[in-house]
Computed example of a mutant assay.
Amino acid sequence: MSNIVYTSNIKIVRKKGALRHAYLPAEAEPVKFGLHGDIAEHYGVSDSIDDPHATTIDYLISAVGGCLTGTFGGALRVRDIDPDNDKLSSEVIGEVELEDNVLVIKRILVKYTLLSAAKDRKTIERVHKIHKDYCAVYQSIYKSIDVTTELNIETI
């Protein structure tokens, strides 16, 4: 058994219907989980959702994209390639399928756009090939969800 290096303590409070508040570490305000769109329709409540919020599925997909983007940016930074000030962005696309009438995240695609000097292209491509190996969220879920990344480098 490995040594525990962090324990996340989160409180979830069910407010009304699908609306839940998650009280996360280091956040002053709760994060709201709810329903919207196709997911609300799947649960048969799309007509009664008057205050739509991102779902827990949306948050999991965004956590994967956020962690991968942060890991990629951090790896670039240590190689003196600046990913900050909007130079690195990502579009995260999660595909959810119905499996035994349960919504299941099957695939996540993270599409990076990086503004960088042409001289850094080879280093950036090398970092892109390995960065997933160092992402905590990716390493936690990749055996269950197919996660891929694409890279578009725009020369500045």
Score class of each variant (00 low, 15 high):
residue 36 H to S: 08
residue 35 L to V: 08
residue 51 D to G: 05
residue 60 L to Y: 04
residue 91 E to F: 08
residue 110 V to Y: 04
residue 48 S to W: 00
residue 119 K to G: 13
residue 94 G to L: 03
residue 117 A to P: 04
residue 86 D to G: 12
residue 77 R to M: 11
residue 52 P to I: 01
residue 122 K to E: 05
residue 51 D to R: 09
residue 118 A to I: 15
residue 21 H to Y: 14
residue 75 A to G: 13
residue 126 R to Y: 04
residue 58 D to W: 06
residue 27 E to C: 06
residue 56 T to I: 01
residue 132 K to Q: 09
residue 68 L to W: 04
residue 128 H to Q: 02
residue 144 S to I: 05
residue 3 N to F: 10
residue 77 R to G: 07
residue 132 K to F: 01
residue 79 R to L: 05
residue 145 I to L: 00
residue 24 L to N: 09
residue 5 V to A: 04
residue 37 G to K: 09
residue 70 G to E: 03
residue 31 V to M: 10
residue 22 A to V: 14
residue 32 K to D: 09
residue 120 D to M: 07
residue 41 E to Y: 00
residue 138 Y to R: 12
residue 148 T to A: 05
residue 64 V to M: 05
residue 130 I to D: 00
residue 43 Y to R: 11
residue 34 G to F: 08
residue 34 G to K: 11
residue 135 C to N: 03
residue 151 L to P: 07
residue 41 E to N: 03
residue 70 G to Q: 06
residue 9 N to H: 15
residue 77 R to N: 13
residue 121 R to L: 12
residue 93 I to Y: 06
residue 32 K to E: 08
residue 20 R to N: 13
residue 21 H to F: 12
residue 129 K to E: 02
residue 44 G to E: 02
residue 37 G to A: 13
residue 122 K to P: 05
residue 108 I to R: 07
residue 124 I to H: 04
residue 124 I to G: 04
residue 153 I to P: 00
residue 27 E to H: 15
residue 134 Y to R: 07
residue 42 H to G: 08
residue 129 K to G: 02
residue 108 I to D: 02
residue 68 L to H: 09
residue 26 A to W: 00
residue 87 K to D: 08
residue 50 D to L: 00
residue 36 H to K: 14
residue 15 K to M: 12
residue 123 T to R: 02
residue 48 S to R: 13
residue 21 H to V: 09
residue 90 S to Y: 03
residue 67 C to P: 13
residue 146 D to L: 05
residue 129 K to C: 02
residue 63 A to I: 08
residue 111 K to Y: 15
residue 38 D to V: 09
residue 112 Y to Q: 07
